[in-house]
C-alpha cells in the first residue's frame, strides 16, 4: 500500500546491486567476503526490539554541531498548535544517527549535513555575529528565507539551499515517525481495533462517494 513516493529509490537499489554484482564477478567470492566493507546492523538484527539513536553505531555531531542542528530543526518544525518542536522529540538525534550510519546513502548525506551545519553557523556569525542557536526568530527567518527553496535560491545560496532541503527532509522524516508527529499530520492508526468500519460518513460525504463493500 505504499505509494510510489515511498518506494526505495530504484537507483539506490541498483547501486547496491551493482556493488554486489561487481563482487560476484570475482572468481573467489570468499576473498571479497573477507573484505566486508560495511559494518552495519547486519542481516539478522533483532527486529522486534525498540531502539534508540546510537544503538548500532557511534554518533557524529560535536556539541556545537548538535546545537546548530537542534536550533535549525526547531525553526523548520517549531512548537505550535499542531504539536511540539522538533527538539522535543529528539529530531536532532535521529539526524545524527542517520548521518553516522555506515551505509552508502547515509554517508552521502553526511557529506552534505556536516559541512552544511558549519556553513550556516558561519553565515550566522557573518550576518549577526551570534551563534545560530541564539538568533532571534526574525534573524533565523532572514537566513532561512534565503535557503528554503532551492529552485529559487540566489546563486550564492544554492549550496546552502541544497543543504537546507536535505536537512528539512531528514528532520521531517524523523518528526513524522513519532507519536507527536503522527498527531501533527493527522495519522491516527497503529492501534488495534475490534472492527474496521471504513471511512466515516463525513469523509464519504466530502468525496461524494458511498461505501461499496457491504
Amino acid at each position: 500500500m505504499n505509494t510510489d513516493d515511498t518506494r526505495l529509490p530504484r537507483r539506490t537499489v541498483l547501486k547496491w546491486f551493482a556493488a554486489a554484482a561487481a563482487a560476484m564477478h570475482l572468481p573467489d567470492f570468499r576473498a571479497d567476503a573477507q573484505a566486508a566493507p560495511v559494518k552495519g546492523y547486519g542481516t539478522d538484527p533483532d527486529i522486534a526490539k525498540f531502539y534508540q539513536p546510537g544503538a548500532f553505531w557511534p554518533l557524529t555531531f560535536t556539541p556545537e554541531q548538535r546545537k546548530t542542528a537542534t536550533a535549525l530543526a526547531d525553526v523548520i518544525l517549531p512548537k505550535d498548535d499542531l504539536g511540539p518542536a522538533a527538539s522535543e522529540v529528539r529530531v536532532q538525534d535521529y539526524i545524527d544517527e542517520w548521518i553516522s550510519a555506515p551505509y552508502p546513502v547515509q554517508q552521502k548525506d553526511r557529506d552534505v549535513i556536516v559541512p552544511g551545519l558549519e556553513w550556516i553557523e558561519a553565515e550566522s556569525q557573518k550576518r549577526f555575529a551570534k551563534d545560530f542557536a541564539t538568533l532571534s526568530g526574525e534573524q533565523h527567518r532572514a537566513i532561512c528565507d534565503d535557503l528554503c527553496w532551492a529552485a529559487e535560491a540566489k546563486p550564492e545560496f544554492k549550496k546552502g539551499a541544497s543543504f537546507f532541503a536535505k536537512f528539512r527532509t531528514l528532520a521531517a522524516s524523523a518528526y513524522y515517525g513519532t507519536d507527536a508527529g503522527w498527531k501533527a499530520l493527522g495519522y491516527i492508526g497503529n492501534v488495534p481495533l475490534a472492527t474496521f468500519d471504513g471511512p466515516p460518513p463525513e469523509v464519504l460525504a466530502k468525496l461524494g462517494v458511498e461505501q461499496t463493500v457491504k
Binding site: 547496491w16 527486529i47 544503538a55 535521529y94 522524516s173 515517525g177 507519536d179 497503529n190
Partner: peptide, 22 residues
C-alpha cells in the same frame, strides 16, 4: 520476532531500507 507496533522512531534509520535489510 515480529515488529508489530514499532514506529519509525523505534528502528535504526527510521526503519528505512539498507543493504543489510533492503
Amino acid at each position: 520476532e515480529t515488529a508489530m507496533f514499532q514506529r519509525p522512531e523505534h528502528s535504526p534509520l527510521l526503519g528505512t531500507g539498507t543493504p543489510d535489510k533492503p
